[in-house]
């Protein structure tokens, strides 16, 4: 891995995996490019057809592979190219956020944004904001966990989720 990313001299450059839907947010990122809107180079975009395709595993995997943050971009509510995929994303995301908190992963590391195809400026702003936030948070350190801890955490989560409906 490159030295630029995880140096400890205060020049920490976070790495972000961004999952963008083809129709809105990916197109908005293209528009930001066409309009030459310069922004933080920290995110690497993975294109999916719809944010509804996002299996929570993808987010976990990105964090495990060394991402300091994950950004999810989809169409605005009501604007999904596939009618309602983004609503499904929203539900999964809400659940995933709880799981991540239980794992000790700070709230701001995983962010979801609705960005329409015409909102190139919003891609710019979100990329810059998130990079700044992650710089403040510092690198993500995932501690190795023992199987006992996992069992314990799972039990806690189950107890917490009792009676909760999303």
């Amino acid at each position: 891995m490159s030295d630029i990313n995880k140096s400890d001299n205060g020049n920490f450059e976070p790495r972000i995996v961004a999952f963008f839907c083809n129709w809105c947010t990916y197109t908005a990122a293209d528009l930001a490019g066409t309009a030459r809107m310069t922004y933080a180079p920290n995110a690497r975009v993975v294109r999916v057809m719809c944010s509804g395709r996002l299996d929570p595993q993808f987010i976990l995997m990105a964090l495990r592979e060394g991402a300091d943050g994950v950004l999810i971009g989809g169409c605005h509510p009501g604007d999904c190219h596939y009618q309602e995929g983004n609503y499904k994303t929203l539900r999964r995301f809400t659940l995933l956020k709880r799981l991540l908190l239980d794992m000790g992963i700070e709230d701001k590391r995983v962010r979801m944004e609705w960005i329409a195809a015409s909102e190139g400026d919003r891609v710019q702003r979100v990329m810059n904001e998130m990079t700044e936030q992650l710089k403040k948070l510092g690198p993500l350190h995932l501690e190795p966990v023992s199987i006992d801890t996992i069992h314990k955490k799972v039990e806690e989560s189950v107890a917490q989720a009792e009676g909760v409906k999303i």
Binding site: M49, C50, G52, R53, D55, P56, Y82, G85
Partner: peptide, 10 residues
């Protein structure tokens, strides 16, 4: 199928 992949994720 229009290929959104929502079912796949679920």
């Amino acid at each position: 199928c229009k290929g959104c992949g929502t079912c796949v994720a679920a």
